[in-house]
Design a protein around this nucleic acid. Structure first.
Length: 616
RNA sequence: GGCCUGGUAGCUCAACUGGAUAGAGUACCUGACUACGGAUCAGGAGGUUGCAGGUUCGAACCCUGCCCGGGUCACCA
């Protein structure tokens, strides 16, 4: 049994013995004692004042006495108002350290036998990845790692939105203005190459639309259609979509292309395959530099027709109902949602139809019992509807569906808008942070004697750590402001700060290895000091933190843990000599403690997808 | 307008899910290395937790009302 559970059991027994009242051991809440007080863990006794019918300090005193005599690991306690702070014995802590110091998988949970799917990334194929995708990918990847560490079997998937009008725009622009260019013969990365044509299409369309607005026909149209005091600008902004669908030459051409694609026209499909292929090659490079990969890719071109049979079945089961025009709906008003369409009157699918079908397909492919969708919070409502619908359909996995919803990323100048060219490109950003680290490192001159390959690898690890940590440390739900300048900060609450703690420890361990040191933690080192205790209690919470992070799907809690542990170590390192400790026993103890700190830091950072350098 | 979501130091974020004097980083001032690596450490200054009520021994957190951002309410995806 875990020591904390032992203590909870102890509290339960104390209350039963002292006040003849039964409580659940699980209801007992223990918190790590705050730094400014003495003790390892704290029991808040206010909840028991009614049961004990005494003042809080009295009750704390009584429970404290009971615990001290009945729980062998507890060596002492003190009472501050209604707070009972108790300490574990030094023997307990030394045992904890020597038992776990060489355990590389310390903190990882027991196998749960559960299979979990995580869907993330899921880009469109008409333009390269940007900052928003990076947040998505980092959250998805680290959630996946955390779920795995918590003992689950995890499958990473993404669904690629490879069809639709957007890619047709790129295709059309390439056909018209591409002049036979390819990523190979222009030396451009595939996704950027295709994205360029998407942008070109949009700007040509804009030119066409603007020209029409200024033509006699356009002006007449405005005058006869405007509502009230509407300005031209307002009106034409709203009318844009209609113009594209009904009047635009370019719009017409793009739509024709989409129809041809849907009809399976050979030439169109071949072009579509070719251009998407370029994009995939480009994405692959970006995923690779972020250090992520997937177990399976789903393509929307294969899944967009799925789900219709399930609608059929749901109709029979009265989950759905049909309107007069033949469209199919679900009524979720009793669950405080609306009526939602699930199949059009012409019998074709909508967005949610294919999501229903895809969920089912995944269940058949992998037998996952739990699914996590990493998607921005603008789709909160969609997922509420999807999950409720799947539940009503009685799908076996429907009780364990989660939307890891995250806030959009803003720039200090405001929202990112691809149309206005204010997006931060993923590849550029990655290259930038690494370059910044390189410049910085050259200035320091610490690792000059290493080979260029080794140095580049170190720059890469540090640069990515800075970027990833900067993004992951913010709670997912929070809309975040991304300042490119701050993302390359290497000091303070940053990835490199954590890496630096690790590197310092490695340096000590290298030095220690050259000396003959007895690393056994004996009984002679009697008094564990306050800062050592802080490190130990921090390490001690790591296993439960992984479980909590997995339950909450919150990688930011791991990032904050890394920072705090690194911070405590830096302080400890500054105030205590390790290799020149006052005694052999102290040295052995501190080396072992440092070693475990390094192991846990590396393990926790790995959960964030961040690699540790050995030197920096 | 309905629903969802957020509002904490100048700025970027925490707060172990209702606990102790609301903490970090950054920016601004000050101090600390002839070294177990200064990508570090210590100190100063910086707060009516959007506002007003309520519940509680105890509220940034729960309830009510209001104010300000963002999202969403398509036979788009």
């Amino acid at each position: 049994m875990n020591i904390l559970e032992t203590v909870k059991e102890g509290v339960k027994n104390a209350i039963e013995n002292l006040y003849s009242e039964k409580i659940e051991a699980g209801s007992v809440i223990l918190n790590p004692t705050r730094k400014e007080f003495d003790g390892d863990y704290t029991l808040v006794v206010f909840p028991y004042t009614k049961i004990g019918k005494k003042s809080p300090p009295q009750i704390a005193e009584e429970i404290g006495n009971y615990l001290q005599t009945n729980v062998s690991e507890i060596s002492g306690f003190n009472v501050v108002k209604g707070f009972l702070n108790f300490s574990f014995s030094d023997e307990f802590w030394k045992g904890f350290l020597s038992q776990n110091v060489d355990n590389q998988s310390f903190g990882k949970g027991e196998p749960t036998g559960k299979k979990v799917m995580v869907e993330f990334a899921s880009p469109n194929t008409n333009k390269p990845l940007h900052l928003g995708h990076i947040r998505n990918i980092l959250l998805g990847w680290s959630s996946s790692k955390i779920l795995k560490a918590a003992g689950n079997e995890v499958v990473n998937v993404q669904i690629i939105n490879d069809r639709g009008i957007a890619i047709c725009k790129s295709m059309l622009a390439w056909k018209k203005f591409g002049e036979g260019g390819t990523p190979e013969n222009t030396g451009k990365k595939g996704d950027h190459f295709v994205g360029k044509f998407y942008v070109e299409f949009e700007s040509k369309f804009k030119a066409e639309y603007t020209a029409w607005q200024q033509s006699e026909e356009g002006i007449e149209h405005f005058l006869s259609h405007k509502k009230g005091e509407q300005t031209e600008e307002e009106y034409f902004k709203k009318y844009k979509q209609s113009y594209f669908n009904n009047q635009s030459q370019l719009g017409k051409a793009a739509k024709e292309m989409l129809l041809k694609w849907e009809a399976g026209d050979e030439e169109t499909v071949a072009l579509w395959k070719k251009m998407n292929g370029w994009v995939y090659d480009g994405f692959e490079v970006t995923y690779d530099s972020l250090g992520v990969d997937f177990d399976k890719l789903y393509y929307e071109s294969n899944t967009y027709l799925l789900g219709k049979e399930m609608i059929e079945k749901g109709l029979n089961d009265k989950v759905f109902f049909k309107k007069e025009d033949g469209s199919v709906w679900i009524d979720l008003t009793d669950a405080k949602m609306d009526e939602k369409i699930v199949l059009r009157s012409d019998g074709t699918s909508v967005y949610i139809t294919q999501d229903i079908g895809t969920a089912n397909l995944r269940y058949q492919d992998f037998g996952v019992e739990k699914m996590v969708y990493v998607v921005a919070d603008e789709q909160d409502y969609h997922f509420k509807v999807l999950f409720e619908t799947l539940k009503r359909l009685g799908e076996p996995y429907a009780t364990d569906l989660h939307h890891l919803s995250y806030g959009m990323v803003d720039l200090p100048t405001g929202k990112m808008k691809s149309r206005e060219g204010t997006v931060v490109d993923a590849d550029d950003l990655i290259a930038e942070v690494i370059e910044e680290v390189r410049k910085n490192s050259v200035e320091r001159g610490e690792i000059e004697e290493l080979s260029p390959e080794e140095r580049n690898e170190i720059y890469r690890r540090i640069g990515l750590a800075a970027l990833k940590f900067f993004i992951i440390k913010v709670g997912p739900k929070k809309r975040m402001i991304f300042d490119p300048k701050e993302s390359v900060d290497l000091q303070g609450q940053t990835g490199p700060y954590v890496q630096n703690a690790y590197v310092r420890i490695q340096s000590i361990l290298r030095k220690a290895a050259t000396q003959e040191i007895d690393l056994a933690i004996g009984d002679n080192y009697v008094k564990i000091e306050a800062q050592e205790k802080e490190l130990l209690t921090s390490l001690f919470t790591y296993p439960s933190l992984i479980q909590l992070a997995a339950k909450d799907l919150d990688p930011s809690s791991i990032a904050n843990f890394c920072y705090n542990l690194a911070k405590d170590f830096h302080k400890f390192y500054h105030d205590h000599s390790i290799l020149k400790a006052e005694s052999e026993e102290a040295m052995a103890f501190r080396i072992q403690l440092s070693k475990m700190v390094a192991t846990v830091l590396a393990s926790a950072m790995d959960l964030l997808g961040i690699e540790m350098p050995e030197r920096m």
